[in-house]
């Protein structure tokens, strides 16, 4: 199973990026094979609107089934939900730490967005 973590770096030791839609990028980790894939998100970092929607689309299309991030807005949450990707918010520390706690079952998946959208 693949898990995507929002991060400001590119490795397992990089910090988790608190933003989802405007994260610098995502590290997608296959928990079975330990293979990692870096997905850039700089195009959405600069977007005037809809960053969360596009980030969610790109993450879902990597095949990830869970997202670990700081915060997730309503539109991104809807896209991820539609794609059956579980969302975990409030995640901090490094990517490796976040994955370890996720695998230990420390968190529960969110049932909704934890922050408001930027547009009505």
């Amino acid at each position: 199973m693949k898990v995507a973590v929002s991060t400001s770096g590119t490795t397992l030791e990089s910090p988790v990026d608190a933003r989802f839609g405007r994260a610098v990028g995502f590290l997608v980790v296959d928990l079975d094979s330990n293979e990692t894939e870096y997905v850039e998100n700089t195009q959405n970092l600069r977007a005037a609107q809809g960053a969360g929607i596009q980030a969610a689309q790109n993450v879902a299309n990597t095949g990830a089934k869970a997202v670990l991030t700081g915060h997730c807005g309503p539109k991104a949450f809807r896209v991820l939900g539609e794609a059956d990707v579980a969302v975990y918010v409030g995640v901090e520390g490094t990517v490796a730490e976040a994955l370890a706690r996720y695998q230990a079952g420390d968190w529960e998946a969110s049932t909704g967005a934890d922050v408001e959208g930027h547009w009505a």
Binding site: N44, A47, G50, I53, Q54
Partner: peptide, 11 residues
Amino acid sequence: NALAVLKDDVL
């Protein structure tokens, strides 16, 4: 950024 294309759906 108004469209999200997923495997089985377009939002």
